[in-house]
Design a protein around this nucleic acid. Structure first.
Length: 824
RNA sequence: GGGGCGAUGGCGGAAUGGUAGACGCCGGGGACUUAAAAUCCCCUGUCCGCAAGGACGUGAGGGUUCGACUCCCUCUCGCCCCACCA
């Protein structure tokens, strides 16, 4: 028995957090004899406070990291802040505070909150993306992409407010397509912007073979996002100013080429202007400007009825030689394929709808085997299935499995086009006409044009104090000290690029920097990188399934090709946590009024209770409702652990072996097995349930003789160790109170013997015709004959069998028998 | 429109094709207390029954099986992702 106070989490937690920090208990060494384990969680945006979602995410994450550490790994579990981005700018504008000041004070606050969780963060490796010692290397990486032709500048559409005269981020455009500042209708405007050539990695990004364990769902989402489709580029010919010119289209159905009855250009297509006849010019111009006003969301809506305008122009189908009318329509997107399509209404649903609306002919050119000729005018939808070619001149009768290949061969021979593969994936637009981001390290010289900033002049310093204009324009455009510089080639006056980088760039490489966070000479030391990367386990929200995770994979593959990395995939294992919801089962939001902040609960119950509760809500991947009532259950559990260890621990246990002590010992082994397996599989809720059961048994027996046995005393020790990843403070405190001097978190994870997890007896369930009729305790080593005898001689069982004939006797060893008996 | 996930007591949830409801919350009863809180003990799926016990029961309907929360088919509802990609 220990003389001790009532459980006081506040005092215990503060004390141990300080002690762990003093001891650098959680700093991962770069050269350890233990195997390295890089355990990463997506770093937070410093919005001001840790919310319930952070606690929900980080609690089990940390428990897993602690489990791995006790299993003998040299765990690196870093944390940092994704600190650039729009909210800081908005705060700057709204409250007249500098973005940097706002961000850094939020970080300071969140550091305290993160410490209060008692997680094993390796604070010595912290990265903050908005600080020059980090963004210097973000800029350096941009230069590497630039050098390798993976970064380029071109005209690209941006959300543009004509009133404010500035670009807008997607989140600054309201749902109705107006500017959040002034209510003007936002248009899409082409401006000079920077892009990264992620599209040239499309094929490589479809290869997931280096990945160890990712959710299948996430892989599918990335596959669909990349959107590979095989098909052909076909060049339609056009007479322009007496010249034969061509306009290419992309199609996945070259076999339908004889069914082309119209041709559609995207409204932004360069040929629109050239092909439109004077009679149609007015209608075309008005349609184009209307399309320009529409936001991408409106335009992509499937619900919308087809619209379009005839240009008056014609192209020639290179295969059939037919003259085809040219339309423009917004269902054709400039950004996909060739920005132009061949319209085959009989065999494409969208073309079908378009043709119906505008009275364009529908011609059947593909027919299912053995089918009668169809009458397309009676169809209610397009027939998209493959089939035999008909109405296709010399190709008539070509079977469906050869049709595509035959047409492609023909157009390649004739020089009308070629087989191609198209990807939905577009290049990554990284320019932001914003202040709070890493400046793009480029200067513009009147003499020498666009020039990269020499690497030894990095970082391109982001001004810390700027003034925001009412218009919402980036203040960098009006900051002469930033803007004016000299040309790296001639030394003459030059201007800096005023765009900053997308914050997704910052987060595409932070996990690399953690391996060597304070290096001022290089982005990382290749030797240290090799020690830690790739990340062994990555945990983060499913909302990042596409962008962040795809960008990071692209970065790693590109840097690999530049010989800067030796691996090809950043994250071996990936886990998506679920979302924590309000008590009403709805997403927490201010408008619903169901937002709960964790801090109050932490000061009331302590971090250990809140951590455990987060893990007890349900399966980690499923998320669930936060219900304050249920915290009480965890609070009681931890108090019961506190009490039973405090009341029952003795310095000198006896070594007597009794049947009770053997039962405890078996339960100890069983519990170790359950908790070990559950933790390995991220099943934190059932692991805690196992610990509660274990604890309940120990409490039940704490006043019995067995409590003085070494088996019982060892059970107490094991309970603390198994619980320590979940509740690190209280277990550490009890560990020391029970005579240990080293940290419980530095101890080895308890081992179990398989043999000891097996019971000596079990409850034999006896079913008659599938219904449970009797339960009998029997020895584990019982034979099938014995089981048969016990079952058939049991009076209750006999009464249910009655005079029916036994047809089957099924015995599942260690579990049950089922006697199938029927009246014949 | 396409794809995915899910539906189990009053609630959160647990169950390698083998005892449905572990663990916890809420609720009820009791002990302790002058009293309350805390704590401890017992009960707690529904229906019938004094009880012993029995019947029913995992969104609905069907199927496979000695046996289905679990596997297959159809449907309903909910959530998530993608969405005119040629």
């Amino acid at each position: 028995m220990i003389t001790r106070a009532k459980y006081d989490p506040k005092e215990i937690e503060d004390r141990w957090q300080t002690q762990w920090e003093t001891d650098h208990l959680y700093s991962a060494s770069d050269d350890s004899s233990k195997p390295n384990f890089y355990h990463l969680v997506m770093f937070p945006y410093p919005s001001g406070d840790l919310h319930m979602g952070h606690w929900y995410n980080y609690s089990p994450f940390d428990a897993y990291g602690r489990f791995k550490r006790m299993q003998g790994y040299n765990v690196m579990q870093p944390i940092g802040f994704d600190a650039f981005g729009l909210p800081a700018e908005n705060a700057a504008i709204k409250r007249g505070i500098q973005a940097r000041t706002w961000t850094l004070s939020n970080i300071e606050n969140m550091r305290k909150q993160l410490r209060a969780m008692g997680a094993q963060w390796d604070w010595q490796r912290e990265v903050v993306t908005c600080l020059p010692d980090y963004y210097k290397w973000t800029q350096w990486l941009f230069l590497q992409f630039y050098k390798h032709d993976l970064a380029y500048r071109t005209k690209a559409p941006a959300n543009w407010c004509p009133h404010c005269n500035t670009t807008l981020a997607n989140e600054q455009v309201l749902a109705d397509g107006t500017c959040e500042r002034c209510g003007t209708v936002v248009i899409r405007k082409e401006i000079d912007q920077w892009l990264l050539k992620i599209s040239s990695y499309a094929e490589r990004l479809l290869d997931f073979s280096e990945i160890v364990d990712w959710p299948e769902k996430t892989i599918t989402m990335q596959r669909n996002w990349i959107g590979r489709s095989e098909g052909a580029e076909v060049r339609f010919t056009v007479d322009f100013n007496g010249q034969q010119e061509t306009i290419p289209v992309f199609t996945t159905r070259p076999d339908t080429i004889y069914g082309v009855t119209f041709f559609v250009l995207a409204p932004e297509h360069p040929w629109v202007d050239k092909i439109t006849t004077p009679a149609q010019r007015e209608a075309v111009t008005s349609y184009v400007s209307q399309a320009q006003r529409m936001t991408e969301i409106e335009r992509m809506s499937t619900e919308k009825e087809k619209s379009g305008v005839f240009t008056g122009g014609y192209v020639t189908n290179p295969v059939s030689g037919e003259k085809i009318p040219v339309w423009i329509a917004d269902y054709v997107l400039m950004s996909y394929g060739a920005g132009a399509i061949m319209g085959v209404p009989a065999h494409d649903q969208r073309d079908f709808e378009f043709a119906r609306k505008f009275g364009i002919a529908i011609r059947e050119v593909i027919r299912p085997e053995d089918a009668e000729p169809g009458d397309p005018s009676t169809w209610t939808e397009a027939r998209e299935a493959l089939g035999v070619m008909v109405n296709s001149g010399p190709f008539d009768g070509t079977p469906g499995d050869q049709a595509k290949a035959n047409i492609i061969r023909f157009i390649e021979e004739q020089g009308y086009g070629k087989a191609t593969i198209n990807y939905r994936l577009r290049d990554w637009l990284i320019s932001r006409q914003r202040y709070w981001g890493a400046p793009i390290p480029i200067v513009y010289c009147p003499e020498h044009g666009m020039q990269p900033v020499p690497e030894d002049q990095l970082p391109v310093w982001l001004p810390e104090h700027v003034e925001f204009k009412d218009t919402g324009e980036s203040p960098l455009r009006y900051e002469p000290e930033f803007l004016n510089t000299t040309c790296p080639v001639c030394g003459g006056p030059a201007t800096r690029e005023a765009d900053t980088m997308d914050t997704f760039i910052d987060s595409s490489w932070y996990y690399l920097r953690y391996s060597d966070p304070h290096n001022s000479e290089q982005a990382w030391d290749p030797a240290k990188l090799k020690e830690w990367l790739p990340v062994n386990q990555y945990v983060g929200g499913v909302e990042h399934a596409i962008l962040h995770l795809l960008y990071s994979r692209f970065f790693v593959k590109a840097l690999h090709d530049m010989d800067l990395l030796t691996f090809d995939e950043p994250f071996q294992r990936l886990f998506h946590q679920g979302m924590v919801l309000g008590s009403d089962g709805q997403k927490m939001s201010k408008s619903r009024g169901n937002v709960e902040a964790p801090d109050g609960y932490v000061s009331k119950y302590g971090a250990d209770t809140v951590r455990c509760y987060m893990m007890f809500i349900g399966p980690f991947e499923a998320g669930g409702s936060f219900k304050a009532d249920n915290l009480e259950g965890i609070w009681r559990f931890i108090n019961r652990v506190w009490n039973v260890v405090g009341d029952s621990w003795i310095e000198t246990p006896d070594n007597k072996q009794t049947s009770e002590s053997k039962t405890i010992e078996r339960l100890r082994h069983k519990t170790i097995k359950r908790v070990t397996e559950d933790l390995s599989n991220f099943r934190f809720n059932t692991a805690l349930a196992a610990l509660m059961e274990f604890n309940n048994v120990l409490i039940k027996q704490q006043h019995d003789d067995v409590a003085r046995s070494s088996a019982y005393q060892q059970a107490l020790t094991t309970l603390l160790q198994l619980l320590s990843p979940f509740a690190p403070h209280v277990t550490e405190e009890l560990w020391h109170q029970t005579g240990h001097t080293e940290s419980i978190h530095a101890t080895e994870w308890p081992a179990y013997e398989e043999e000891m997890t097996k019971d000596e007896a079990f409850t034999l369930v006896i079913q008659v015709n599938g219904k449970v009729r009797e339960r009998i305790e029997v020895g584990a080593d019982i034979s099938e004959d014995q089981v048969r005898q016990i079952a058939l001689n049991n009076p209750r069982v006999q009464s249910f069998i009655g005079d029916a004939t036994i047809q089957k006797f099924i015995y599942i060893p260690g579990r049950l028998v089922n006697i199938v008996a029927r009246n014949v």
